[in-house]
Design a protein around this nucleic acid. Structure first.
Lengths: 115, 115
DNA sequence: TGTGTATATAACAATATGCTTATACAATTT
DNA sequence: AAATTGTATAAGCATATTGTTATATACACA
């Protein structure tokens, strides 16, 4: 199933490498389900804030996600304007929802910090 | 668009990492178009035989491709029995045909060695 | 203006990746 | 059986990746 035009194979490899990390892939899936701030991701992945920030940066540099500033928080979500958005969505759609992770967090009392 | 069941996100990340290398991704696309022997891949990618062999092994270890022995040659192609075959095909289908590479080889007189 | 909170960046260390060269193995041919 | 050809494996090296800790920046609010 073909969404738009073909993607150059080298570009595709770059995108797949970017998604080929379980943290970033989960992030992307979660961001496809709702906008996230960094602190939420930190709690979700039980990973240091700089580590999260660096993953986010890679995704942002690729143009796959966009940021929106809201007060002192920065919210990230998929960037539908990316030429590769359809390609990526195609992949993300094959993956199970990660909402349960957010629910688990909630259950453990760690309320999502910034919404 | 959802082909079969969902793929565990960690497994998916592993697959995407495997595909997230331009050599392997091209190989996979080419193998989706025709069975290949190693020597053909060596010519196609202008890369040393051990380098090619090592990429092939990674793909084979993952179960994404299968091998068939024919005399002294070993032919590789996508393994349709892999539980991840649909997932991978989904991705490969978004990529342009690499047949032109084979054609180029042919044009340069380097006939494909083993068919 | 100063303090606290959210996020980013820098420097570094550990591990992973992908190539190279050298060598081994397997099938073919003489 | 020896030589040739196709492929795989091993060891080593260079570079990339991903985390850590320390520090910087941006905004909010008292």
């Amino acid at each position: 199933m073909q969404t738009t035009q073909y993607i150059d194979i080298e570009t595709a490899a770059g995108l797949l490498k970017l998604l080929g990390d379980k943290t970033r892939l989960s992030m992307m899936k979660i961001m496809s389900e709702h906008e996230c701030c960094v602190c939420e991701l930190v709690d979700l992945f039980e990973m240091s804030q700089p580590a999260i920030s660096q993953h986010v940066r890679k995704l942002k540099d690729s143009g796959l996600i966009k940021e929106r500033r809201g007060g002192q928080w920065i919210y990230y979500s998929l960037n539908p304007d990316s030429p590769f958005h359809p390609f990526v969505l195609h992949i993300l759609n094959e993956l199970p929802s990660q909402r349960f992770k957010v629910d688990e967090l909630e259950a453990r009392g760690k309320r999502v910090c910034c919404d």
